[in-house]
């Protein structure tokens, strides 16, 4: 494998509060290679969005990065400030958020927003930018692109708007796209369109994608590798087929099992007892041990399990026979 586009090493984000230090992201490490789609899954509060925001430097105070490193194309970016960070955000990292309406400026035409972004980050002329904007809109599948260029965001439907957002994220030719729940607000049929579009564009351009979502089905169909997060920590990381069909971490196993599809034909779904610990009351040792069917004494005590070479950060990973994984 060549050098990764994005490399996160032991990233830790902390929020100082009156009740003590909260750690919404706790020593998380993962890489994304050129042209690869890494799915980041987890339930709400698992820290998956917070990790994405840390990469683009969009943490809201008082949350801040207190440990670890973030490397983008061989440059360390977690210490960047102000202007440098802003340039990086538009040029090297594109962003697609859940709600397409709030990520577009309602007062500017989409043509203005596209050309403005390109002029800021690429050395091209106004006419050239306009030409490229039309090409970008055609590429994301907006019919009659040259006429729609002068339309305002509210004149588009939800699905079309998300296409515009994708065009905007890609127009400065970034090497990494962070897509945070890009299809959660969309209907099933539109979601399929957007996913297919994102996959095609990134494959054609070799863009690396961090796809943050809670939807296992979307991950299964879209991602190459998947990182499963639990209570701010990385529980499991591996190729998507293996993680979904033969999970090694008991949490991943429970999560996959509790989707209705996995319990097909059963009158009851498999369920994980209890709920994710609050950040204010994090258990010692492995964060999952209070809910884990395999927990032993060692799981309850620090130091917590780490992913050393294996897929799962677990003392007792589930082992699978060869044909199960196939």
């Amino acid at each position: 494998m060549s050098d990764p586009v994005l490399s996160i090493r032991d990233l830790t984000v902390e929020i100082p509060t009156r009740g003590g230090l909260l750690r919404p992201v706790d020593q998380v490490s993962y890489d994304i290679a050129k042209g690869e789609i890494l799915g980041v899954v987890g339930e709400s509060g698992a820290g998956k969005s917070m990790a994405g925001n840390a990469v683009i430097g969009l943490l809201n105070r008082p949350a801040k990065i207190t440990g670890g490193e973030i490397w983008l194309n061989g440059t360390r970016i977690d210490k960047l400030q102000g202007e440098n960070m802003r340039r990086l955000r538009g040029k090297d990292i594109g962003m697609v958020f859940q709600d397409p309406l709030t990520s577009l400026n309602p007062l500017l035409t989409i043509g203005d927003q596209l050309t403005e972004t390109m002029l800021q980050h690429l050395s091209i002329t106004q006419t050239e930018a306009r030409k490229r904007a039309i090409a970008a809109l055609e590429e994301v599948g907006i019919p009659a692109a040259s006429e729609r260029l002068d339309s305002y965001p509210h004149e588009f439907s939800g699905g079309m708007r998300q296409r515009v957002v994708i065009a905007l994220a890609l127009c400065a030719e970034p090497s990494l796209i962070i897509a945070d729940e890009p299809t959660t607000a969309l209907d099933v049929s539109v979601q399929a369109q957007i996913i297919a579009l994102l996959k095609r564009l990134c494959r054609d351009r070799g863009t690396a994608v961090m796809l943050i979502t809670h939807d296992m089905g979307v991950i299964a169909e879209t991602a190459d590798r998947v990182a499963v997060m639990y209570a701010g920590r990385l529980a499991e990381l591996g190729p998507v087929r293996e993680v979904i069909t033969a999970p090694e971490h008991p949490y991943t196993d429970g999560l996959m099992g509790s989707t209705p599809l996995a319990s097909k034909g059963l009158k009851r779904l498999r369920q994980i007892p209890g709920s994710m610990p609050r950040l204010t009351a994090m258990p010692t040792g492995c964060a999952f041990h209070p809910r884990c069917p395999k927990a032993q004494d060692i799981c309850r005590h620090d130091p917590r399990p780490r992913r050393d070479g294996g897929r799962a950060a677990c003392h007792f990973p589930i082992t699978h026979s060869a044909e199960e994984t196939a």
């Binding site: 539109v190 399929a192 297919a196 299964a220 169909e221 979904i244």
Partner: peptide
């Protein structure tokens, strides 16, 4: 169009229109 848990790398012809 609905995503499938076993649809690894599935390339679908997405539905048309909204």
């Amino acid at each position: 169009a609905a995503p499938k848990m076993d649809g690894f790398g599935r390339e679908i012809d997405p539905p048309q229109g909204e």
